[in-house]
């Protein structure tokens, strides 16, 4: 079975209502993902794409991912290596997209974090540790119906497993 999902990295902290045009700006939507990802968050933090490193954790406020259904909003974060997003609340399509693509998205109302804090995320258990502040926070658990999909690494691998080997 899949290894337990745990993510650890530095916090990049954003405010409320980070929308899909900030995550995946329209003018670059026709471009390959690698190019689109370089513009991720540039409207609110122009240096984000160049500073973020694999495993880093994006911390958001309420309404994270509001707007379009474009899953490039999730894929841009994955492309940059973001390990998980922890937010006070997610827009419904972004939340579904994130889990479908294997990006852990955790609802955590209480998390306190500043830029650069060392954050560890336990999506399955539903908790987050801020090692810098030495504090632990409880999160909303991912719905049971979705846990299987997340554990498989996303909807396509999950379906692949369910549909069995390719019949050709």
């Amino acid at each position: 079975m899949s290894a337990p999902i745990v993510r650890r990295g530095r916090a990049f902290v954003f405010g409320d209502q980070i929308d899909t045009d900030v995550l995946a700006p329209g003018p670059y939507m026709k471009k390959p993902l690698s190019e689109l990802a370089r513009h991720c968050m540039e409207a609110v933090d122009p240096g984000f794409a160049s500073r973020v490193r694999p495993g880093d954790i994006v911390v958001g406020g309420v309404g994270f991912g509001i707007g379009s259904s474009r899953e490039q909003a999730v894929q841009a974060l994955l492309e940059l290596g973001v390990g998980a997003v922890v937010a006070k609340g997610f827009a419904r399509i972004f939340y579904r997209n994130a889990l479908n693509l294997g990006l852990p998205a955790l609802v955590c109302e209480d998390l306190e974090a500043s830029a650069g804090d060392e954050i560890e995320v336990f999506p399955v258990e539903g908790r987050v540790i801020n090692h810098t502040r030495r504090r632990e926070y409880a999160c909303e658990p991912i719905p049971a119906a979705l846990m299987e999909v997340v554990a498989a690494g996303g909807l396509v691998p999950w379906l692949e497993h369910r549909l069995g080997p390719r019949s050709g």
């Binding site: 899909t20 707007g67 379009s68 259904s69 474009r70 899953e71 999730v74 399509i93 579904r96 997209n97 479908n100 693509l101 996303g154 909807l155 396509v156 379906l159």
Partner: peptide, 26 residues
Amino acid sequence: GGDSHSPSGGAVGAYMVGVGATEITG
């Protein structure tokens, strides 16, 4: 619908939701 404004379908009395492309695949 594979678009966030899919709720538009509700104008006709349907329940229409938007999802992303991976979920459309599923």
